[in-house]
Amino acid sequence: MSKIKLAHYWGAGCGGCDVALLDIDEKILGVAEIADIVFWPIAVDGKVKDVEAMPDKSITCTLFNGAVRNSENEHMAKLLRQKSAIVVSFGSCACYGGIPGLGNLTNRKEILELVYTKLPTSDNVERVFPQAETHTKDGDLELPVLYDTVMTLDQVIDVDYYMPGCPPTTNLINEFLGIVTAHVKEGAPLPPKGAMIASQKTLCDECKRKKAVKKIDRIYMPHEIAIDPDKCMLEQGIICLGSSTRAGCGAKCLEGNQPCRGCMGPTAEVLDQGGSMLSALASVYRVEDNEALLSEDNIATLMAQVKDPMGTFYCYTLPKSIIKRKVKEKKQVKKEV
């Protein structure tokens, strides 16, 4: 039996996903048994031109992690799509934009401005910025173009499967490798295109904490109180995105007594993870007996206890949200001080 051809590439990511693949313990031997690694920049020496030379669809499966944030990411995504039979959007950044996706709260110009002129360590009075093309006497140099907007992998290429997580957990990777192995070895059917290699349910399904009545009287940051390890995080007033987040990770953060921040993204039924969780939280947040007498200002003050809704509810999913990125009003409103 011939081995399958596996590629693993990183876009705008942190490398954690690459490490996660290495982190599957002895199962990595199983991978080696069924697969030839044809391209994996972090682990195996290989050149882009080698990939370009491969016949179309000759790579059995590409695991693509990281978001698409510059021209190189996009080029590689498209190249690997052309060369691969199956492309898996691997990890939160590829699936939803992930942490790099928060870059959509700003833009290319602001980022370059900050990084090249405003950091304490910057010493750039000439205001030199990286250019896509630089002509030197030794020849022309090219750098990828940084985009204004971070995109998810499926906003750039057609994706076959999704495996969310920051990074995807060992069990999910194993599950997927098992499916591919069974497919290769025994001809077992692959999941339907577009399938999510994770649970259909929410994290509450995997979370072992005891639930009582969802009624929040005050919101706390995790460091502000001693967190009861057995009680539902949300019921303690700590914003936990578990109820709006897809299960599959094993609720590891909650086991570590930290709230879920939503890296697995929403369930299939939810369009916008942030909007959905925002609505849930607002719905159970302190409805008082004297509600009718509260003014709109009272309510605004009450809800202002939720600090930074964007960072809280869209930590991993901004590029995949309904609005996708920050916009710029022509007419700027003056903020009250």
């Binding site: 947040y285 605004a300 009450l302 809800m303 916009v327 009003e329």
Partner: peptide
């Protein structure tokens, strides 16, 4: 009975979010 109380909580928070998106919350 109390549906509108939930509505106004959500809208209040949503306006903050819209502002973070760069929209004029009005």
């Amino acid at each position: 009975i109390g549906g509108n109380y939930r509505t106004r909580r959500r809208i209040a928070l949503l306006r903050v979010l819209l502002e973070q998106y760069g929209f004029n919350p009005d």
